[in-house]
Design a protein around this nucleic acid. Structure first.
Length: 481
RNA sequence: GCCCUCAUCGUCUAGUGGCCUAGGACAUUGCCCUUUCACGGCAAAGGCACGGGUUCAAAUCCCGUUGAGGGUACCA
């Protein structure tokens, strides 16, 4: 039994997509579950789509989520290099070996000819496939063309009969007629390998045991298996995870809103929440638990339990997870995480006990870290507000003014600035005035916060401190004068 | 068009032939808690795509239909 070695092989085209990261997560969890290795390989074979700085964006996103790897371009490993652009010779060498064996061939057809050919085939309602024009070239003709500097690609000669099958760990047996598989380009005219070539060669030399990737790769798998066979290599095991879809069931893309990990980070989602949510997109444990840390996921995750059908990325559920994690992490920790969002909103805030005390009061109301500024701003600066805000629905201006003045007296005389005596005396005060507690507490809360929705009156008053509380009461009373 | 894959509440899912009168979570609605907003508690509504088989028994197995998704590139 061979050791488990799995890999995440993104192409560096920008901020990694949550769908890709879900695939990375599954690989990671499988590796950790089995005690195997998790490898990162950068597939930078498309010089056109390549985006500068993407490697870093990918590493950052994974690290942020808590995903660690055992081998990769940044940390090296025994089977490097882990960047395909640094392995070009290897691919070329193996492609030539296939040509030598008669299993691949040079093709000099122009893009225009290929395009015309496809159009004709489509018009004739036939599957568009390369017509093997260049397969008929003699060795001499090929050499002549190469010598003349004609651009060329190397194509795999796919058998025209028989079937290619594989046992997918998630889907069971999948079978393709070879006759529908095109003669895949292996080496492009710029000398770079195609995905199919590079991925097979690398997975072999990096001793990858399981290829866990998204469903969109199912129809490429037979091409890969044919390649493994051509080289005389044993293919790895395959597992094709379901797609991550948008609410309209199409592929999740930018027009549906946030799709990149970095975006979710900036939107104020916690890595714990995103990871937990993503793990549940296409996978679920046997029992009914919903909350899992990465460690717990690694313990429970089984590739055989991954679902077959596409999963819609439901923002509502993500938000719920996020709120849950916000409520359950340490308050000091939350305060720490909230700080950059407050600074970004232009608030003059530093990390201190006051901040922690404030955060404690909004912790169970916060769904994303990005909401922190609007939830906390009044603790630092009382916002402008309409005097009408002070007056509860079931009260009037006079009563409210009286209530506020009473609050002022009570708070001013309150020696023990703590919750229970404050509550006791304020409730007593409303009784004394012959009004309902709401007729006194709403105005107090509104005076303290300048908001219609906020944490409770006692809690806020307590945190603001006597001096500030009295100041805000004076301000409120003058508004009603 | 051709090939492949998939199909349980609106969404994520549990379910591997009898424990299913189909369970949970999110979202929705109502009630409770309550000074507001949240949180929390309780409750309601809501689903096995359709049609045939197989079987004493089917959400579960088989076939077909329909629908959805993916692939069909010198992109990955």
């Amino acid at each position: 039994m061979c050791d488990v070695r799995v890999r995440f092989a993104p192409s560096p085209t920008g901020d990694p997509h949550v769908g890709n990261i879900r695939t990375a997560l599954f690989n990671y969890l499988y590796a950790r579950h089995t005690g195997g290795k998790f490898i990162i390989r950068i597939e930078d074979t498309d010089q056109v789509r390549l985006k500068e700085g993407s490697d870093q964006a990918i590493f950052d996103s994974l690290r942020w989520l808590g995903i660690t790897w055992d081998e990769g371009p940044d940390i090296g490993g025994p089977y490097g290099p882990y960047r395909q652009s640094e392995r070009l010779d290897l691919y070329k060498k193996h492609a030539l070996e296939l040509v030598e064996k008669g299993m691949a061939y040079y093709c000099f057809c122009s893009a225009e000819r290929l395009e015309n050919m496809r159009k004709l085939q489509e018009a004739a309602k036939k599957a568009p496939m390369y017509d093997r024009k260049c397969l008929g070239l003699t060795k001499e003709e090929v050499e002549e063309k190469i010598a003349a500097g004609e651009p060329y690609v190397i194509r795999l000669k796919v058998p025209r009969d028989g079937t290619t099958e594989f046992d997918d760990l998630i889907r069971g047996r999948v079978s393709f007629e070879n006759s529908v598989i095109d003669d895949q380009v292996l080496i492009k005219s710029d000398g770079f390998p195609t995905y199919h070539m590079a991925c097979v060669v690398d997975d072999h030399y990096m001793k990858i045991s399981h290829v866990i990737r998204a469903e969109e790769w199912i129809s490429s798998t037979p091409k890969h298996i044919i390649l493994y066979e051509a080289f005389g290599w044993t293919p790895p095991k395959f597992a094709h995870a379901p797609m991550v879809l948008a609410p309209d069931r199409s592929k999740l893309s930018k027009r549906h809103g946030a799709t990149g990990v970095k975006e979710f980070r900036e939107l104020g989602y916690l890595p714990e929440a995103l990871a937990n949510f993503l793990a549940f997109l296409g996978w679920a444990p046997q029992d009914e638990r919903e909350i899992f840390s990465l460690e717990e996921l690694a313990k429970e995750f089984e590739i055989e339990r991954v679902n077959k059908s596409g999963a819609i990325f439901d923002m509502n559920k993500l938000e719920w997870y996020n709120g849950y994690y916000i409520r359950h992490i340490e308050t000091r920790d939350l305060a720490q995480r909230v700080l950059p969002f407050l600074e970004k909103a232009g608030m003059q805030v530093k990390f201190d006990d006051y901040l922690v005390n404030c955060v404690a009061l909004v912790q169970e109301r916060m769904k994303t870290l990005a909401e922190a500024p609007e939830l906390l701003d009044f603790f630092y600066e009382l916002p402008e507000y309409d005097p009408e805000l002070l007056i509860p629905k079931k009260s009037d201006r006079e009563t409210t003014k009286l209530a506020l003045e009473k609050c002022y007296q009570v708070l001013k005389g309150l020696e023990d600035w703590s919750h229970d005596p404050m509550e006791e005396q304020l409730r007593q005060a409303s009784t004394d005035l012959g009004i309902k507690s709401g007729q006194l507490l709403w105005p107090l809360r509104a005076a303290m916060t300048g908001k219609s929705a906020s944490p409770g009156a006692f809690e806020v008053t307590l945190v603001l401190g006597k001096e500030e509380a009295l100041k805000r009461l004076e301000n409120a009373i003058s508004k009603l004068a």
